[in-house]
Design a binder for these strands. Structure first.
Lengths: 354, 354
DNA sequence: CTGTTAGCGCATTCAC
DNA sequence: GTGAATGCGCTAACAG
């Protein structure tokens, strides 16, 4: 019924081992033999049995990429870039040679699902795992994660962090590429302050997320330095990283502080929702209220007015994570690299009306 | 070094077979025995060896979801929905019981990569495969795809199409959920015609894609019926499904026909680019030129003005595909269902200036 | 450069 | 309800 290595070997008049060798390409095989084997493979339409070879070799060609929200381009861009580096271009035959199977797993931001996916990947003996985006800061979950990652690393799985702060004990992982969320958040708010804003509302992401906290801390540092740190509780509203949250939180901020002249959002998607709320309340952007986001997703430049935001090189970071996971690039010193965030000043921010 | 089933068996003082039985849960085992085994599993921190069990059982728990562009929410929404149905909520222990490993694979729209992923999934003996979005219409590639899908189905892999037209010989697959792209495209253009538009430019997607062709045909049918079919070559420009393409194509359309009063874009992202081009040329939306998109992605309602578009129930379709792939839902009659597309009239379209 | 020999770790017959 | 054997299909030493 199902054709096996032995069938191919028989047809090519060689031993199974030889077939295995040409298929894996990691061994010297005479050109003529290889030719013959390949023809037999095509004739028989043979496809390697992945589980069997993974079992024998004690490693698989699976590489997992964990994302918090697959519908969010923030993750899609990173994951796509990583996959490009990992999957290889293919040889056009659809035959699939030694390429890895780069797959993305959507945790939906749930700690449980994150752990479950890691276990599933561990079960598959994944060659590598890339974790993208902010981590949940609950201590119990962090401990469980660190233990799990250590076990994965122990079993030979390469662990790479992308857009996520390094682990407390970073020894277990290949590398961590951390975004400078704090610095970016700080510069963004400094920009607003320099324009003359004093009453700035902040729509933060979900609680207990590193990304949320770092961006917010950057904002608060800037406010503090400007002597405006007193009101932070009242001028901050938390919510998920989505449009709706931006909309609702902005209405709430407007209620709490009608004199607000600028809204800083945790990311661009949230900023879009914030903008809608501002308009629905009859205010203009940026004349009445300035708006700023974070990430510089592709749509941000097309917002009207174009969104002031902080650019993160998501594609480059994802690609680098992919290379690191493949061992194609040497890890940064100490295994940790900080990715710079660049302020992008556009039309959605302007001096306050006064 | 690595703990195996036998180790667990030894510690629980049972046979390996029994451990296997409680882990797979498909067999009667005494409660007390199960208890003991589970404790041993936890004590030893045992994780099933996926490749080994897949080899022995001749099936794996991997489910592949193929997407054309993972950075595009169009696919992200469908994939996320499907994953939700497949992965299950997890039991909170991170232990991972019988759940499937739902993974998404990004083809980048490349036929080669599509085929390669399918081969890789076949190699893993995937339990199911979901193909999302438009198919490439090159005959050779279609033939290769059909052959590959037939082989997958033959090997027990459940194949489900989501947002993709059914196969020529649909017997091989579990089900196809097709979007009514043609009908949606037609109604969208009819809406524009009813507003009084006569010179309508069309920014189409890439050539040789079913989605592109169906949407365009819907548009052209409407134009034809209105006696405006003569100019279709000149008023249509093809390009990728991205912002940049919308921008460039719109400039081109404006050059070819300065009197154009409406631009229909192949999807919302393209419409965003089109809008930017229109504005950069000094025109207002919708006063001078109307703009319409397709898909109704989350950001479309936040465009300024809000984008007139055609809504596709992406989440619902993805979830249904996921259930179909799991065998949790009975396939539609004939294995084919057409998903309706709903016209969403918003602020970006209005009667032409005259 | 190629063939032979042994498992990899588990699911599944069978017996009991 | 449980244990003992068998083999899934392949890779990795070894020889030659």
């Amino acid at each position: 019924m199902t054709v096996t290595l032995a069938d191919v070997a028989a047809r090519a008049r060689v031993s199974p081992a030889t077939v295995s060798r040409v298929l894996n390409g990691n061994y010297p095989v005479a050109a003529s033999t290889r030719e013959r084997v390949l023809r037999a493979v095509d004739d028989l339409d043979y496809v390697l049995n992945g589980p069997a070879s993974s079992l024998a070799a004690a490693t698989s060609d699976l590489v997992g990429i964990l994302v918090n929200d697959i519908a969010d381009p923030f993750f899609g861009i990173m994951a796509g870039a990583a996959q490009t580096e990992i999957g290889g271009p293919g040889d056009g035959s659809g035959r699939a040679g030694g390429e890895k199977l780069a797959v993305v797993c959507n945790t939906g931001g749930s700690p449980d699902r994150e752990l479950t996916y890691l276990t599933l990947l561990q079960r598959q003996r994944a060659a590598a795992v890339i974790l993208t985006g902010g981590a949940v800061e609950d201590p119990a979950h962090q401990a469980a994660m660190n233990a799990k990652l250590a076990k994965l690393a122990d079993a030979g799985t390469r662990v790479v962090l992308c857009g996520r702060p390094p682990l407390p004990e970073g020894e277990a992982i290949v590398a961590a590429l951390a975004f400078d969320n704090r610095g970016g958040g700080r510069r963004l708010t400094e920009h607003l302050l320099s324009l003359g804003h004093r009453r700035i509302g902040y729509v933060a992401g979900p609680l207990e997320r590193t990304t949320t906290r770092h961006r917010l801390e950057g904002h608060q540092e800037a406010m503090q330095d400007a002597g405006l740190g007193g009101d932070k509780e009242r001028l901050t509203v938390h919510g998920p990283y989505d449009r709706r949250s931006g909309y609702d939180a902005t209405l709430e901020l407007l209620r709490r502080e009608p004199e607000v002249t600028a809204i800083v959002a945790a990311n661009d998607t949230v900023a879009l929702g914030a903008s809608a709320a501002i308009r629905d309340r009859g205010f203009r952007i940026p004349e009445d209220i300035s708006v700023a986001g974070f990430d510089d997703l592709p749509f941000s430049v097309d917002a009207v007015p174009a969104l002031t935001t902080v650019r993160l090189p998501l594609f480059e970071a994802g690609a680098r994570a992919g290379r690191l996971a493949m061992g194609k690039e040497t890890p940064p010193p100490g295994g940790i690299a900080t990715i710079a965030a660049e302020l992008m000043v556009r039309g959605s921010t302007a001096p306050p009306r006064k």
